[in-house]
Structures are given as structure tokens and as C-alpha cells.
Amino acid sequence: MKIGRIETFYVPPRWLFVRVESDDGAVGWGEASLEGHAEAVDGAFEALRDRFIGHDPRRIEDIWQVSYRGGFYRGGPVLMSALAGLEQSLWDLKGKVVGLPAWEMLGGRVRDKIRAYAWIGGDRPSEIADAAKVRRDQGFSAVKMNATAELDWIGTPRLFDEVVKRVEAAQATGMDVGLDFHGRVHRPMAKQLAKVLEPLGLLFIEEPLLSENPDGLRQIAELTSTPIALGERLFSRWDFKPFFEMGAVDIIQPDLSHAGGILECRKIAAMAETYDIAVAPHCPLGPLALASCLQLAACTPNVAIQEMSLGIHYNVGHDLLEFCSDQQVLTPEDGYLRIPQGPGLGITIDEDAVREAHKERHRWRNPVWRHSDGSFAEW
């Protein structure tokens, strides 16, 4: 068996799907979505095609090693996202050939389902409460929300009170809450806000500082008992290693479409397990990314919860499930997502719909926010 074709598809709102076909007609799908940079990732596939057309698709680890190490320059969001999408598609193809889910080939199932959460937005407590109720009706028992868009270097207790009220509004609907700082808050304010939030019993605070400031993250971790989460902007086990060693994180959030794919994230999770660190994969992406995350959750003991982006609001008019032929596989129930039982990634992609959507070739770009004084604000 040889790889005969590697195709990429721009799928709205902001996804990049990968399709690999062997010379005897076996097909696998993956997702190489890197929000706002689809063209760059697509360009990286030119080198992957040159190197791997004619290669045995079942030799997944060999393909990963050659791809990562064979180009001299390695790592980073673009190359690792391309490699992730290719790697996912190879697990999907191999699983369909041998009739096994990817999790079965990676050691077998350790759970039947995984708890899931979804993002909510809103400026006022009433808006947050309404959004949380929508998620509850969709089958979730946990949500994540932004901490704030306003806190900069210095602030006031009034701003802290607004954050607390928004969290309490979501919790009043029966939801558990994780709070995402998005790296928007500078260290002096992040330290104060972490202390103010501690009594609320949050699932986690995410990116209280950017991962570019590991010493600051360690300081915050020492100030609060609330779990610290980060990792969506880290792209390999080497990127995660220093955070494990310094004790600056309690929950890691690798993105399986940014951090090298399913097996690389399984290796990252195994490293985390030795430090008693939980895994909550980042996934505000499409169905193939989510299906890949569920393969990881199935066979990885320290995966604790899974993010998903259900609904058209978050996905800018497109639903996570619209390109799936078997939507129930990725639908939450009683707060959980079931582990897919089908071969490969366990979902079926509507290829005709994907090819039709690709004709538009989306040009999604990250929005830009500014503080009230006109200065740039972190996304």
C-alpha cells in the first residue's frame, strides 16, 4: 500500500481538512486547521506531498519523524498543524483498512465517555446566564467563558466585581465554569484577579499569562489553589517540557490539530501523567479535530474534559456537525461525549459537501480587539 494522493480543503468557517488516499483506494481524513492561517498551512503540504506520495501510509511514526526532523527547520504552528492534519488522516485511513478505531490501535479504551464543555459569551451577567442555559439545553454541564476584555496593567475592585458577577451568573444555572484569561491580563493584575476568583471554585483559569512568561505563570500558580491551564499555543512535547519541570501548570490543553496530531499529543499526555497533570485538549475547531480528540480521550487516563465548539454562533454561521454524515457521534448527552466506536476517527465525512464548500476558499482572519484607550488587546 502506498500513498497516492494528499488533498487539502478550505472548509468554512475557518477549517482546513486533509484527505489522504492510498493507491488501492483507501481513504483517511484529518484536520490541519490553524485559525487565520489556512493558506500558510496549505502551503506546507507541498513539501509533505513531495516527500510522502508513494510512502506506506501505515508507517505513521516513521512519516511523523521524517516530516518533523527531515526538513532541518522544525516545530511552530504552521508546520506542526500541517503534520497534525496529515497524521490524523493516516490514523483514519489505517483504522478503516484494519477495521479498528484509532484508540484501539493506541492501547485500547480506558473510558466509555468524556465530559465536555463549550464556550459562552456575553458582557452582562444576564447574557452569560442565557448563554449558559442554551449550553445546558444542548447537553453540557460545564462551560468556559472569557475573564475580561478590559483588564490591562492596573485596574479597580469594580472591574474585579464585574468578572465575579459574570461567573456567578453562569454557575447559578447549574454549570461548572472555566475562565479563560486569553493572556490579556498583565502579571500584576493577573495575580490579584486569581486571588479574587479563588473562592468561586472554578474548573480552571486558562492562560492567566501567555506561555511566553513561564516565570510569571509559576508565581501565579504559587498564589492560588485554582488549577492553572494552558497549552493551546504550544506545539510539541519539547514546548511543554519546561512547564512540567517548573510546576507552573495543572491542566494542559494541547490542540490535536496544532500540536503534531494524535500520537504526539498522546506522548505529551504521558509526560504530563508523570507530573500528575491533567489533560483537557483545546478544540474550538471542526469535526475531524474533535473526533481526533475523542480518540485521545479514549486511551489516555489523564484526559479530564474535552472542549467542543457546538453551534453556529461560535463557528460564524456554520455548525460543527454540518459536514458529518453521522452527527450523533459528536453530540453531547448529560454532559458527556461518547467515545466513537467506528474505525479510524470514528466519523464519516460528507465528501461531496466538503468539495462543494471548498470552492469558496474561505479567507477567515482573526478579529482584532482594542482596549478603551485604543491600544491593542490580546485575542
Rank of each mutant, 00 (worst) to 15 (best):
T274G: 15
G342Y: 08
V97H: 00
E378M: 14
A272L: 13
G28W: 00
W91M: 04
R115A: 02
L151S: 02
H282T: 06
G317A: 06
H186R: 05
D176F: 01
W369R: 14
D255V: 11
A269G: 10
Y73S: 11
C283A: 08
L200G: 03
I305G: 04
L209V: 02
G43N: 07
T300D: 10
G247V: 12
R184Y: 01
D112M: 06
L197Q: 01
L230N: 10
V134K: 15
D215H: 15
E127W: 08
D319L: 08
M271K: 10
D239L: 10
V163N: 04
E31Q: 01
D319M: 09
G36C: 01
A149M: 14
K96C: 00
E212A: 15
Y314W: 12
R109F: 06
L310Y: 03
G346A: 02
Q328T: 11
I114K: 07
E35H: 09
L93R: 03
L79K: 11
P77H: 05
K191R: 10
V41Y: 09
A291T: 03
S257W: 12
A170P: 01
N213A: 09
R69Y: 13
H282F: 09
M189H: 03
D42P: 07
K144R: 06
P13E: 00
I339F: 09
Q88N: 04
E212K: 13
P208K: 05
V354M: 05
R355V: 01
K267P: 09
F244P: 12
V143L: 06
G317D: 07
W29H: 01
N366V: 08
T8N: 06
A377C: 14
L86W: 08
W364F: 14
L263R: 14
